[in-house]
């Protein structure tokens, strides 16, 4: 048998189980803070947490579809596995991760915008996929139902990120991540595409996109509830920075 097999993290480090329990919201605030404190000082755990977060985020896009299909199979339902996709608003697209961003031109088709700028200090922005075309969106972007959005960010420092939306019907939705808490994003010196995309539904009108960059992995449902209640007066919770983009969704 091989004798080379060794673990990399020590007994005082954070195991994958503990990280996964934290991602699942099974740990208390104190324990989550203790993990954050350890990770801040431990390069091995920091790297592992980032690996796990990226893997998890990359996997989330298929969860709703698979879960519905399994549930339908188990209950022998004749309904479509897509019938219950989060109020029809958030259809997380099973796009080949990263491919369409790599093909994106610098400017939108037929647009003369010289520079598509990011708003705010953490470089929050998005790309649009419409049919076969992929282009970079920006503030005031005119979008269509069925467009896919892929969010990008360039965080100045390690932050937990969540993206929420308030659509033309004043309905609040969490666009990213699919899990219960904001997901860590580590500065890499480059713009990072979030590993999931959203498909816009057919609610027309102005839609506000909110990116929250937080020091702690905040739970998302209270944020969504606050956005639903406060609407356009929604402000960043303590410890978070808020960046907004206003886009417009019109009929084709």
């Amino acid at each position: 048998m091989s004798s080379e097999l060794k673990r990399t993290r020590g007994q005082t480090c954070v195991s994958d189980l503990r990280f996964d329990r934290m991602f699942a919201g099974e740990l208390g605030e104190d324990e989550a803070r203790a993990i954050d404190a350890h990770v801040a000082d431990c390069a091995l755990c920091r790297a592992r947490r980032q690996e796990l977060e990226l893997a998890r985020a990359g996997d989330e896009h298929r969860s709703a579809t698979e879960a519905n299909a399994l549930h339908a199979r188990a209950t022998r339902s004749q309904r479509s596995p897509f019938a219950r996709t989060a109020s029809g608003v958030l259809a997380v697209a099973a796009l080949a991760a990263g491919v369409w961003l790599a093909l994106a031109p610098a400017r939108g088709p037929g647009e003369s915008r010289e520079e598509l700028r990011f708003k705010g200090g953490h470089g929050f922005g998005f790309y649009v996929q419409r049919g076969a075309a992929v282009y970079r969106g920006g503030p005031g972007e005119q979008l269509l139902p069925g467009d896919h959005l892929r969010f990008v960010a360039r965080p100045r420092e390690r932050r937990y990120l969540a993206v929420l939306s308030l659509d033309g019907a004043q309905r609040a939705t969490v666009y990213y991540p699919a899990g219960p808490r904001a997901v860590a994003l580590v500065p890499s010196g480059a713009e990072q595409a979030l590993p999931a995309s959203v498909r816009l539904d057919d609610v027309l009108g102005p839609e506000r996109l909110y990116a929250l960059f937080c020091a702690q992995p905040l739970a998302l449902e209270p944020l969504r509830t606050a956005l639903a209640q406060q609407r356009t007066t929604f402000s960043a919770p303590t410890g978070c920075e808020l960046e907004q983009l206003l886009v417009h969704k019109a009929a084709p």
Binding site: A24, R56, E60, S63, E66, A67, N68, H71, G179, P180
Partner: peptide, 12 residues
Amino acid sequence: RFEELYRVHAPS
């Protein structure tokens, strides 16, 4: 509820 459990736990 199942969708929520799946979303949280299936990745790991």
